[in-house]
Write a protein that binds this DNA or RNA. Sequence first.
DNA 1: TTGTACGCGTTATCAA
DNA 2: TTGATAACGCGTACAA
Lengths: 353, 353
Amino acid sequence: MKRMKKKVTIHDIARMANVSAATVSRVLSNSDYPVSQSLREKILKIAAETNYVPNLLGKQLKKNTSTTIGVVVPSIVNPFYSSVILGIEQTARQRKYTVITCNSMHDPELESEYIRMLMEKQVKGLIIASIANDGGMFKQLADMGIHVIAIDQRVDAEGISKIDFDFVKGGQMATRHLIDKGHRRIAYLTARMDRPSRRSIFRGYQEAMKEAGLEPILVEANADDDHNPLSDFDTGRALARKLLAAKVQATAVFTCNDMLAIGVINELSSRNIRVPEEISVMGFDGIDVGQMIHPPLTTIKQPDYEMGKMACTMLLNMMNNENNHQFEIILQPKLIERQSVVSRGGHSETSGR
Amino acid sequence: MKRMKKKVTIHDIARMANVSAATVSRVLSNSDYPVSQSLREKILKIAAETNYVPNLLGKQLKKNTSTTIGVVVPSIVNPFYSSVILGIEQTARQRKYTVITCNSMHDPELESEYIRMLMEKQVKGLIIASIANDGGMFKQLADMGIHVIAIDQRVDAEGISKIDFDFVKGGQMATRHLIDKGHRRIAYLTARMDRPSRRSIFRGYQEAMKEAGLEPILVEANADDDHNPLSDFDTGRALARKLLAAKVQATAVFTCNDMLAIGVINELSSRNIRVPEEISVMGFDGIDVGQMIHPPLTTIKQPDYEMGKMACTMLLNMMNNENNHQFEIILQPKLIERQSVVSRGGHSETSGR
DNA sequence: TTGTACGCGTTATCAA
DNA sequence: TTGATAACGCGTACAA
């Protein structure tokens, strides 16, 4: 085995400079404690020459702090979450923090395993897109002095700060847009509604349909494992077939996420059903891929990257200022009109004749 | 500020059990040091009741180890890298390791800033898809006793373990496939060739063209910042226009990555040039989105997820066994035939007549 | 089989 | 302005 140079510590530097370790610590950690200019320069010089790298373990053990935050998401391969994480990571870096990313893969056990590992690493802040619907864990974390922010998932747990989207409003906006375009038979295609967010989108859809006096058409998947974007894509294809088989003659479909929508478009196209001419398709998420397909996907945008930025900023503020009052931020949806939705001239049941 | 319970340590448990901290340490850290069964049970019981969570900082400071590995990639938003990271993260978890992900955004300064942060955190292992072409950093890390594995980027640095693809062979395979399909005028469209991998793919293309007696057609972009997949997509569109303007009458194009290919297809389609009937398109990467577009993209698959798994496995083995002999693994490309490439009946210059 | 004592690298307290 | 010393939580010789 290779021999490696021993790491240089403040004691080494202290010896070389004929000062105490305390003094070295004071200058190297930018303490405001007074140290004479001459000593300061001398120490700085030696530190530079010896390539001194501070050991955060010692520092953090002593001060009981941490410059690492934990992030738990279902899967980093989901482009929505990878954007969120990028937002988190970039703002963390600016404040000299570092992030540990954990993929829970929609497995509650994995999620708590990860959280335990993070606790052992003495992480003091956590951003989590939880899949456990039991809010007890959050309470427990709070008791341990961990600051946590829940994102993307409307958790039932009280007493916890969260950043969410207004899924209900998003669902309404999407549906109203389709209605405004003259559609009357509008189907909602969704992966299994085992998540609050999906139920909320559905609620928004229902409300918008109701206020327009239209009858909802729900097509729901049975299974769900979107740790893999492809599975959402496949689910979309399956749901499209299911829709066709149901013979409800929808002129527009609205899906619970973009991947699903892309699957739907793919399936319809391959059956020579033209999108949007015969069936309009509206997604939900605003991921990049939506712009790359044909036709470009009309969708509801969730500001993913911004959500990450905001979550991280709020978290670091909480951790440093001990500014501990809870908050709940609700990000607003935004309609992105592209070309997968087309207006339907008055030819349906409700049109004048 | 809320009052939080003090964290329980082995000393607390020792006091409650009327034993020494040493004994507690021995049982709670699964030492093979002998402890009587009665004491062991007593301690375990108390630990469970008090929700004891070991402090890894103390442990790692003492033993000078770390269960965190660092990963540096250009951008997690790039689906190729997010798959790699998922592979890394999942195998790390199985061995109770945790990963810190860093996005260098193709900025060498950011890259070294991150590496410094990781050093301060006493990380002992690093997987890095570097963008710095200077190999000096690797040498320096090795001297500090850090185990590092370079991936995806054929670094010039000697004395470092790496996992790469055979980009040259990938370029050949793609090109030969197009040639086998009867194409003669085959263009290579690439983002700026400032990365070894892209130059290697180009080399493979050149070799295959040469051995078939065909003349290469190179279309290269000027700028390059693919921290954002959309920019590769846009680059692809731009290159497609450039190709068309050049009036070289290519019947097939081969691109340096899938995003680019998708951009090309998009641009061609929007100009009513049919893919693959008029122009065949071949990508490189094998990312999921390739299956979601129309037509599904024929491409060269890089085993991204497997690469992450392998890199992490090798790294952990190196770290634990001190099994320090260097290695270089070259993963082999695989052709995935889908529908963006079609065979060209004998109507070109070389066909019989 | 158990306990004592020390050190990992750092910072904070107190004296000088 | 500087230094000696005691922690932080843990593991481990060494002694008992």
